Amino acid sequence: MSCFEVIDPRFGGFVMGNAPVKRIATGFDWVEGPVWFGDAGCLLFSDIPNNRILRWTPDGVTTFRAPSNYSNGHTRDREGRLISCEHGLRRVTRTELDGSVTVIADGYGGARLNSPNDVVVARDGSIWFTDPHYGIMTDYEGFKGEQELHCNVYRVDPAGGIEAVITDMACPNGLAFSPDETLLYVADTGRMFHPDPQHIRVFEMVRGRPHGGRVFHTISPGCADGMRVDTEGNLWSSARDGVHCIAPDGTLLGKVLVPEVVSNLCFGGRAKHQLFITATTSVYSVVLNRNGMQRP
């Protein structure tokens, strides 16, 4: 069975027949938040229900942090520090180079955040994160609790000020900037609880703030969760059947097929040409003829 589904001929040049999808780790409950540390030669990812962050290298999997406060999504900032979304304490944190943890955001307008989900860092050093309510709905991925805020997208400026920049989504989830940061893509997985949203919206960045928010693409089957972009501006999104590659004009180009529901993904490896995929109980990897926008 092929690891790929080519829908547009362009996608045929993005994948290689002699570079199949490989399962590199398994035995987890719900994996999320992959982030590549090229300077350490490792991938970090969350096993949310088991309250731990794990470290993968070609030699195997070890524990990076446990307990992890039920961490979900991760990224790196401009200085290479780990930025994490924690369901358990309803906050976004930064792990300093000495290992200490700094709280970036844990509330807005006097109310507690819901359960920060995914996070990106812009070139100006601002931290952008989504805050759906998944982590407080049950005790499975955190602690069941009261929802005090609408599910928003927030921006934290380098000085620490927090602002709700997108407030009209049902359940904002994965997010990613275009390579030139003129566009911001945000997935809405509200269909899990509402009759409608299951799409990716795209916002135009005007003076550092998102405007518009038209529907860019609708994932099928399933919903978009985590997303990343490559250097050519193609969007790689999670889906029920794998990873979908979407052109900058919204055209579905093809799929990397994965036998489990995909939650998130990131680029990494020697040339940022390796796609790491978290999917239900396992982590997968595939080498592409594309390069990601992640830091080395």
Rank of each mutant, 00 (worst) to 15 (best):
M205H: 06
L97V: 14
M192W: 11
I246K: 01
M227L: 12
R123I: 04
E146W: 04
E96D: 12
T189D: 05
C42W: 03
R123E: 15
P9I: 04
I7L: 14
F276R: 05
L44Q: 07
G110T: 04
G60I: 09
S68F: 07
L183H: 13
A66D: 14
E260F: 00
V120S: 02
A187C: 15
F216P: 02
T182R: 11
L265P: 00
C85M: 12
H273V: 02
R81Y: 12
H211G: 11
R214W: 08
F267I: 02
P259Y: 05
M293K: 08
L89Y: 15
I104C: 00
N72E: 14
Q147P: 02
T62M: 06
V243A: 08
G242Q: 01
H244L: 05
H217R: 10
G254W: 05
G226E: 00
D196L: 13
G12Y: 04
R201E: 03
L43G: 03
P179D: 04
G27Y: 11
N289K: 06
R123Y: 06
A187Q: 00
R76C: 04
G88E: 02
R55L: 10
N291I: 13
R295E: 13
V15L: 09
W128I: 14
N50D: 13
T167D: 07
G12I: 08
G161C: 11
C85W: 07
H199S: 01
F216S: 00
T281Y: 05
F267Y: 09
P195K: 08
S285H: 00
S220Q: 13
F45V: 01
N50F: 06
C3W: 15
M192I: 13
S220R: 12
G17C: 10
M192A: 11
E96Y: 01
G41E: 11
L54Y: 08
R228K: 15
G208K: 03
G142W: 02
P9D: 14
A176V: 12
E181Y: 09
R91M: 13
S237Q: 09
K255Q: 12
W56Y: 15
D131A: 03
E141Q: 00
N289Q: 11
S115G: 11
H273Y: 04
N291A: 13
S68M: 07
S46K: 05
F276E: 05
L89H: 15
V101F: 03
